Simulated scan of single mutants.
Amino acid sequence: MYQARKVSRSEFVPLRNLRYHVRLWGEPGAGKVPLVLVHGWMDVSASWQFVVDAFKDDHYVIAPDWRGYGLTESPPADNYWFPDYLADLDFLLDHYSPDAPVNLVGHSMGGNVAMLYAGTRPARIRRLVNLEGFGMAATQPAEAPKRYAAWMDQLKALHRGEMDLKAYGSAEGVAQRLMKTNRRLGQDKADWLARHWARQDADGMWRILGDPAHKIINSSLYRVDEVLELYKAISAPTLSVEASDNSLDQWWKGKYTLAEFHQRLQAVRSLAQAKVSDAGHMLHHDQPAQVAQHMENFLQDRAG
Protein backbone atom coordinates (compact mmCIF):
# COMPACT_ATOMS: atom_id res chain seq x y z
CA MET A 1 0.00 0.00 0.00
CA TYR A 2 1.09 3.59 -0.63
CA GLN A 3 3.05 5.07 2.27
CA ALA A 4 2.27 8.73 2.93
CA ARG A 5 5.45 10.74 3.41
CA LYS A 6 3.75 13.73 5.02
CA VAL A 7 1.15 12.79 7.59
CA SER A 8 -2.00 14.89 7.87
CA ARG A 9 -3.99 15.70 10.97
CA SER A 10 -7.72 16.26 11.26
CA GLU A 11 -9.74 19.07 12.78
CA PHE A 12 -13.49 19.43 13.06
CA VAL A 13 -14.72 22.99 12.69
CA PRO A 14 -18.29 24.27 13.20
CA LEU A 15 -19.29 25.94 9.92
CA ARG A 16 -22.85 26.99 9.08
CA ASN A 17 -24.47 24.51 11.47
CA LEU A 18 -22.35 21.64 10.17
CA ARG A 19 -19.39 19.83 11.71
CA TYR A 20 -16.82 20.31 8.98
CA HIS A 21 -13.84 17.99 8.67
CA VAL A 22 -10.61 19.70 7.65
CA ARG A 23 -7.36 17.91 6.87
CA LEU A 24 -4.15 19.83 7.59
CA TRP A 25 -0.55 19.31 6.54
CA GLY A 26 2.32 21.41 7.85
CA GLU A 27 2.17 24.33 10.25
CA PRO A 28 1.33 28.02 9.92
CA GLY A 29 4.31 30.33 10.12
CA ALA A 30 5.66 33.78 9.39
CA GLY A 31 5.74 34.44 5.66
CA LYS A 32 3.71 31.32 4.82
CA VAL A 33 0.64 31.84 2.69
CA PRO A 34 -2.01 29.26 3.63
CA LEU A 35 -2.58 26.83 0.76
CA VAL A 36 -6.23 25.81 0.56
CA LEU A 37 -6.99 22.69 -1.51
CA VAL A 38 -10.61 21.89 -2.37
CA HIS A 39 -11.61 18.55 -3.87
CA GLY A 40 -14.03 17.60 -6.60
CA TRP A 41 -17.37 15.81 -6.89
CA MET A 42 -17.53 12.43 -5.14
CA ASP A 43 -14.03 12.88 -3.77
CA VAL A 44 -12.48 13.63 -0.35
CA SER A 45 -9.72 15.82 1.08
CA ALA A 46 -7.36 12.85 1.46
CA SER A 47 -7.24 12.77 -2.34
CA TRP A 48 -4.58 15.51 -2.15
CA GLN A 49 -2.09 13.31 -0.28
CA PHE A 50 -0.05 12.37 -3.34
CA VAL A 51 0.40 16.00 -4.41
CA VAL A 52 1.27 17.09 -0.86
CA ASP A 53 3.89 14.34 -0.73
CA ALA A 54 5.35 15.63 -4.00
CA PHE A 55 5.72 19.24 -2.81
CA LYS A 56 9.32 20.40 -2.49
CA ASP A 57 8.48 23.51 -0.48
CA ASP A 58 7.16 23.69 3.08
CA HIS A 59 3.46 24.53 2.91
CA TYR A 60 0.69 25.01 5.43
CA VAL A 61 -2.09 23.09 3.69
CA ILE A 62 -5.78 23.33 4.56
CA ALA A 63 -8.07 20.83 2.80
CA PRO A 64 -11.74 20.48 3.77
CA ASP A 65 -14.15 17.69 3.00
CA TRP A 66 -17.06 19.51 1.35
CA ARG A 67 -20.47 19.20 2.99
CA GLY A 68 -21.83 15.69 2.50
CA TYR A 69 -18.41 14.23 1.67
CA GLY A 70 -15.77 12.44 3.67
CA LEU A 71 -16.09 13.08 7.39
CA THR A 72 -18.03 16.34 7.08
CA GLU A 73 -21.68 16.17 8.07
CA SER A 74 -24.49 16.22 5.53
CA PRO A 75 -27.05 19.01 5.84
CA PRO A 76 -30.65 18.09 6.67
CA ALA A 77 -31.73 19.12 3.15
CA ASP A 78 -32.08 16.42 0.50
CA ASN A 79 -30.14 18.18 -2.24
CA TYR A 80 -27.11 20.45 -2.70
CA TRP A 81 -26.79 23.97 -4.08
CA PHE A 82 -23.63 25.38 -5.59
CA PRO A 83 -23.78 28.69 -3.68
CA ASP A 84 -23.45 26.72 -0.43
CA TYR A 85 -19.95 25.62 -1.41
CA LEU A 86 -18.93 29.27 -1.88
CA ALA A 87 -20.41 30.21 1.50
CA ASP A 88 -18.75 27.23 3.20
CA LEU A 89 -15.41 28.28 1.75
CA ASP A 90 -15.95 31.85 2.92
CA PHE A 91 -16.64 30.68 6.48
CA LEU A 92 -13.64 28.33 6.30
CA LEU A 93 -11.33 31.21 5.38
CA ASP A 94 -12.83 33.30 8.18
CA HIS A 95 -11.69 30.56 10.53
CA TYR A 96 -8.22 29.81 9.18
CA SER A 97 -7.09 33.06 7.54
CA PRO A 98 -9.40 35.94 8.47
CA ASP A 99 -6.86 38.73 7.92
CA ALA A 100 -4.72 37.57 5.00
CA PRO A 101 -5.32 36.23 1.48
CA VAL A 102 -4.69 32.57 0.69
CA ASN A 103 -3.51 30.53 -2.26
CA LEU A 104 -6.53 28.56 -3.48
CA VAL A 105 -6.42 25.36 -5.55
CA GLY A 106 -9.46 23.41 -6.70
CA HIS A 107 -9.92 20.23 -8.69
CA SER A 108 -12.95 19.59 -10.94
CA MET A 109 -16.04 20.74 -9.00
CA GLY A 110 -13.65 22.30 -6.50
CA GLY A 111 -11.99 24.16 -9.36
CA ASN A 112 -15.37 25.54 -10.41
CA VAL A 113 -16.06 26.64 -6.83
CA ALA A 114 -12.62 28.23 -6.58
CA MET A 115 -13.08 30.24 -9.78
CA LEU A 116 -16.51 31.54 -8.75
CA TYR A 117 -15.35 32.30 -5.22
CA ALA A 118 -12.28 34.19 -6.46
CA GLY A 119 -14.57 36.42 -8.50
CA THR A 120 -16.90 36.94 -5.56
CA ARG A 121 -14.19 37.65 -2.94
CA PRO A 122 -11.20 38.72 -5.05
CA ALA A 123 -9.31 40.30 -2.14
CA ARG A 124 -9.20 37.00 -0.28
CA ILE A 125 -7.19 35.14 -2.95
CA ARG A 126 -3.47 35.72 -3.57
CA ARG A 127 -3.11 33.12 -6.33
CA LEU A 128 -5.61 30.75 -7.88
CA VAL A 129 -5.06 27.33 -9.47
CA ASN A 130 -7.85 25.53 -11.32
CA LEU A 131 -7.25 21.84 -12.05
CA GLU A 132 -9.76 20.71 -14.70
CA GLY A 133 -12.60 22.82 -13.31
CA PHE A 134 -14.38 23.32 -16.60
CA GLY A 135 -17.83 24.40 -15.52
CA MET A 136 -20.91 23.14 -17.30
CA ALA A 137 -22.52 23.32 -20.71
CA ALA A 138 -24.54 26.45 -21.33
CA THR A 139 -28.28 26.15 -20.72
CA GLN A 140 -31.18 28.07 -22.20
CA PRO A 141 -34.34 29.41 -20.51
CA ALA A 142 -36.46 27.03 -22.59
CA GLU A 143 -34.86 24.13 -20.68
CA ALA A 144 -36.24 25.30 -17.32
CA PRO A 145 -39.56 23.36 -17.28
CA LYS A 146 -37.98 19.98 -17.99
CA ARG A 147 -35.07 20.70 -15.67
CA TYR A 148 -37.34 21.45 -12.70
CA ALA A 149 -39.32 18.31 -13.47
CA ALA A 150 -36.15 16.22 -13.64
CA TRP A 151 -35.01 17.66 -10.31
CA MET A 152 -38.28 16.71 -8.61
CA ASP A 153 -38.30 13.25 -10.19
CA GLN A 154 -34.77 12.62 -8.93
CA LEU A 155 -35.70 13.80 -5.43
CA LYS A 156 -38.44 11.16 -5.39
CA ALA A 157 -36.04 8.52 -6.65
CA LEU A 158 -33.61 9.46 -3.88
CA HIS A 159 -36.29 8.99 -1.23
CA ARG A 160 -37.22 5.62 -2.71
CA GLY A 161 -33.60 4.56 -2.27
CA GLU A 162 -33.01 4.29 -6.01
CA MET A 163 -29.96 6.60 -5.97
CA ASP A 164 -28.08 4.92 -3.12
CA LEU A 165 -24.38 4.42 -3.72
CA LYS A 166 -23.12 0.87 -4.12
CA ALA A 167 -21.63 -0.74 -1.00
CA TYR A 168 -18.62 -3.04 -1.19
CA GLY A 169 -17.75 -6.15 0.77
CA SER A 170 -14.15 -5.13 1.33
CA ALA A 171 -11.74 -2.23 1.01
CA GLU A 172 -10.18 -4.18 -1.85
CA GLY A 173 -13.51 -3.98 -3.68
CA VAL A 174 -13.48 -0.20 -3.29
CA ALA A 175 -9.93 -0.11 -4.63
CA GLN A 176 -10.97 -2.14 -7.67
CA ARG A 177 -13.78 0.34 -8.28
CA LEU A 178 -11.32 3.24 -8.19
CA MET A 179 -8.97 1.53 -10.61
CA LYS A 180 -11.83 0.71 -12.97
CA THR A 181 -12.75 4.38 -13.11
CA ASN A 182 -9.15 5.52 -13.52
CA ARG A 183 -7.00 3.16 -15.58
CA ARG A 184 -3.79 4.96 -14.52
CA LEU A 185 -4.36 4.50 -10.79
CA GLY A 186 -1.95 1.93 -9.38
CA GLN A 187 -2.87 -0.73 -6.85
CA ASP A 188 -0.83 0.91 -4.08
CA LYS A 189 -2.59 4.27 -4.38
CA ALA A 190 -6.00 2.66 -4.88
CA ASP A 191 -5.61 0.61 -1.70
CA TRP A 192 -4.65 3.75 0.22
CA LEU A 193 -7.44 5.90 -1.23
CA ALA A 194 -10.08 3.22 -0.67
CA ARG A 195 -9.71 3.51 3.10
CA HIS A 196 -10.30 7.26 2.94
CA TRP A 197 -12.91 7.30 0.19
CA ALA A 198 -15.06 4.72 2.00
CA ARG A 199 -15.65 3.50 5.55
CA GLN A 200 -16.74 0.16 6.98
CA ASP A 201 -20.18 0.14 8.60
CA ALA A 202 -21.52 -1.95 11.49
CA ASP A 203 -22.47 -4.73 9.04
CA GLY A 204 -18.95 -4.94 7.66
CA MET A 205 -19.80 -3.30 4.33
CA TRP A 206 -17.63 -0.53 2.93
CA ARG A 207 -19.71 2.54 2.05
CA ILE A 208 -18.60 5.51 -0.04
CA LEU A 209 -18.25 8.69 2.03
CA GLY A 210 -20.51 10.72 -0.22
CA ASP A 211 -24.16 11.61 0.16
CA PRO A 212 -26.16 10.12 -2.76
CA ALA A 213 -28.09 13.40 -2.92
CA HIS A 214 -25.03 14.84 -4.68
CA LYS A 215 -26.19 12.91 -7.75
CA ILE A 216 -29.36 14.98 -8.09
CA ILE A 217 -29.44 17.48 -10.93
CA ASN A 218 -29.30 21.14 -9.94
CA SER A 219 -32.69 22.67 -10.63
CA SER A 220 -31.14 26.03 -11.56
CA LEU A 221 -29.94 26.68 -15.08
CA TYR A 222 -26.22 27.16 -15.68
CA ARG A 223 -25.83 30.77 -16.79
CA VAL A 224 -22.61 31.31 -18.70
CA ASP A 225 -23.15 35.08 -18.73
CA GLU A 226 -23.10 35.08 -14.92
CA VAL A 227 -20.01 32.87 -14.84
CA LEU A 228 -18.15 35.20 -17.20
CA GLU A 229 -18.90 38.19 -14.99
CA LEU A 230 -17.41 36.31 -12.04
CA TYR A 231 -14.37 35.36 -14.12
CA LYS A 232 -13.90 39.03 -15.04
CA ALA A 233 -13.93 39.96 -11.35
CA ILE A 234 -11.02 37.61 -10.46
CA SER A 235 -8.03 39.77 -9.55
CA ALA A 236 -5.62 37.01 -8.52
CA PRO A 237 -3.15 35.62 -11.03
CA THR A 238 -4.74 32.39 -12.20
CA LEU A 239 -3.28 29.11 -13.46
CA SER A 240 -5.53 26.74 -15.40
CA VAL A 241 -4.13 23.20 -15.54
CA GLU A 242 -5.45 20.51 -17.87
CA ALA A 243 -4.66 16.84 -18.34
CA SER A 244 -3.40 15.47 -21.64
CA ASP A 245 -6.61 13.43 -21.97
CA ASN A 246 -9.50 15.61 -23.14
CA SER A 247 -12.13 14.47 -20.66
CA LEU A 248 -14.45 17.38 -21.41
CA ASP A 249 -15.14 16.39 -24.99
CA GLN A 250 -15.59 12.76 -23.89
CA TRP A 251 -18.21 13.71 -21.28
CA TRP A 252 -20.26 16.20 -23.24
CA LYS A 253 -19.95 14.70 -26.74
CA GLY A 254 -20.11 18.02 -28.54
CA LYS A 255 -22.53 19.84 -26.21
CA TYR A 256 -19.61 21.57 -24.49
CA THR A 257 -16.04 21.51 -25.76
CA LEU A 258 -12.55 22.30 -24.54
CA ALA A 259 -12.43 25.11 -27.09
CA GLU A 260 -15.51 26.68 -25.47
CA PHE A 261 -13.87 26.46 -22.05
CA HIS A 262 -10.76 28.18 -23.39
CA GLN A 263 -12.99 30.90 -24.79
CA ARG A 264 -14.54 31.44 -21.35
CA LEU A 265 -11.08 31.64 -19.77
CA GLN A 266 -10.33 34.72 -21.87
CA ALA A 267 -12.48 36.64 -19.39
CA VAL A 268 -9.84 36.07 -16.69
CA ARG A 269 -7.54 39.09 -16.66
CA SER A 270 -4.30 37.40 -15.51
CA LEU A 271 -4.17 33.84 -16.84
CA ALA A 272 -1.49 31.21 -17.29
CA GLN A 273 -2.11 27.71 -18.63
CA ALA A 274 -0.34 24.38 -18.21
CA LYS A 275 -0.80 20.79 -19.29
CA VAL A 276 0.00 17.57 -17.43
CA SER A 277 1.23 14.75 -19.66
CA ASP A 278 0.01 11.14 -19.48
CA ALA A 279 -2.92 12.06 -17.25
CA GLY A 280 -6.68 11.98 -17.18
CA HIS A 281 -9.20 14.00 -15.21
CA MET A 282 -7.79 12.72 -11.89
CA LEU A 283 -4.46 14.28 -12.79
CA HIS A 284 -3.52 14.79 -9.12
CA HIS A 285 -3.59 10.99 -8.77
CA ASP A 286 -2.06 10.20 -12.14
CA GLN A 287 0.89 12.61 -12.09
CA PRO A 288 1.15 14.21 -8.65
CA ALA A 289 4.78 15.28 -9.17
CA GLN A 290 3.89 17.20 -12.34
CA VAL A 291 0.88 18.81 -10.68
CA ALA A 292 2.92 19.77 -7.61
CA GLN A 293 5.65 21.30 -9.77
CA HIS A 294 3.20 23.38 -11.82
CA MET A 295 1.54 24.59 -8.63
CA GLU A 296 4.74 25.47 -6.77
CA ASN A 297 6.34 27.21 -9.75
CA PHE A 298 3.23 29.35 -10.11
CA LEU A 299 2.67 30.04 -6.41
CA GLN A 300 6.32 31.00 -5.86
CA ASP A 301 6.75 32.94 -9.12
CA ARG A 302 9.35 30.49 -10.37
CA ALA A 303 9.98 30.12 -14.07
CA GLY A 304 9.45 26.74 -15.74
Score class of each variant (00 low, 15 high):
residue 23 R to G: 01
residue 129 V to A: 12
residue 14 P to A: 10
residue 132 E to P: 00
residue 196 H to T: 06
residue 230 L to P: 01
residue 209 L to W: 05
residue 45 S to Y: 10
residue 217 I to V: 15
residue 183 R to T: 11
residue 210 G to M: 11
residue 87 A to C: 04
residue 209 L to M: 15
residue 251 W to Q: 15
residue 248 L to C: 05
residue 278 D to H: 12
residue 45 S to T: 14
residue 243 A to M: 00
residue 109 M to D: 02
residue 129 V to Q: 02
residue 192 W to N: 06
residue 187 Q to W: 15
residue 294 H to P: 02
residue 113 V to Y: 00
residue 44 V to F: 09
residue 275 K to A: 11
residue 191 D to K: 11
residue 275 K to E: 14
residue 120 T to Q: 13
residue 230 L to M: 12
residue 186 G to T: 13
residue 231 Y to V: 03
residue 151 W to I: 02
residue 239 L to V: 00
residue 150 A to H: 06
residue 56 K to C: 11
residue 300 Q to F: 15
residue 15 L to H: 04
residue 55 F to Q: 06
residue 291 V to I: 05
residue 64 P to E: 02
residue 162 E to P: 10
residue 261 F to E: 08
residue 66 W to I: 03
residue 77 A to S: 13
residue 303 A to E: 14
residue 130 N to P: 03
residue 130 N to D: 12
residue 206 W to F: 08
residue 149 A to P: 04
residue 291 V to E: 00
residue 34 P to H: 04
residue 186 G to F: 11
residue 41 W to M: 00
residue 41 W to D: 00
residue 138 A to G: 12
residue 257 T to R: 03
residue 197 W to S: 04
residue 199 R to E: 14
residue 196 H to Y: 15
residue 93 L to M: 09
residue 192 W to E: 03
residue 281 H to M: 00
residue 174 V to G: 09
residue 141 P to W: 08
residue 112 N to Q: 15
residue 59 H to N: 09
residue 132 E to T: 06
residue 172 E to N: 05
residue 221 L to W: 05
residue 256 Y to M: 03
residue 227 V to T: 15
residue 79 N to I: 08
residue 127 R to C: 06
residue 287 Q to N: 02
residue 32 K to W: 10
residue 15 L to W: 05
residue 68 G to Y: 02
residue 164 D to P: 01
residue 131 L to E: 01
residue 77 A to N: 07
residue 291 V to F: 00
residue 112 N to M: 15
residue 160 R to K: 13
residue 182 N to Q: 10
residue 231 Y to G: 03
residue 218 N to W: 13
residue 100 A to Q: 13
residue 135 G to F: 07
residue 1 M to T: 14
residue 260 E to V: 06
residue 215 K to V: 11
residue 37 L to K: 00
residue 65 D to Y: 12
residue 234 I to L: 08
residue 303 A to Y: 09
residue 160 R to P: 07
residue 303 A to W: 01
residue 66 W to N: 02
